[in-house]
Amino acid sequence: MSTSLQMVIVYTCLLMALINLVRRQWLVNMGALALQYGMVFLLLITFRNPSLGIIKLLVGLMVTLVLYLTLVSLGTLQPLQYIFRFSLGEIFRGLAGIFMIIAVTLFTPGLRTEVFPLTSLPVLTASLGLVILGLLQLGMITEPLYVIIGLLTFLSGFELLYGSMEFSTVLEALFAAVNLGLALVGAYIIVKDEEPETR
């Protein structure tokens, strides 16, 4: 895969994370999350066997599906709005996210030379971008669904970075367990208000 194609994938991935940071429309968020996992998979197979990389894609899609089905079961998914009107909060988050993506793009080459020489530039840009956008999401929002999406975004960036430096089957299994656990915890937190305590 050429570097320019990889950079297209990187910025598509970061755009999805940015959408999740900015928009508060659950259907859009689920779509963006699934697409983000797809892009992470495409970056992952630049340095790892696709048969191993696909595990992360499957886990990511399962995570998205768990959250999506939870929202569907609660009947809280609203139809898509095709006319975008941005609130002040969305504009602020969007600008903060864009600023961070620019900062990551500018600082990554130097950081790569100094700290992560084994990681390719596109992979490092994507992973740091996801980590920072995830952190931004965690710092700006207290709604459980978005906190979980923020944590998943942070983790997918971190896993991409970690995976570019080391591969371990046990670690992959534990990461998969953490991702699925986060999705289940997210689903639990979202639905538990709807169900009475059973004891």
Partner: peptide, 28 residues
Amino acid sequence: IEIIALLSVPLLSPRGARAGPGLLRYLI
């Protein structure tokens, strides 16, 4: 430790009560 944190969630915030900011910060 992260898996322990995830498994602790049903204990710390059982059904019937909203998840507060403390629980979410704990996870973060």
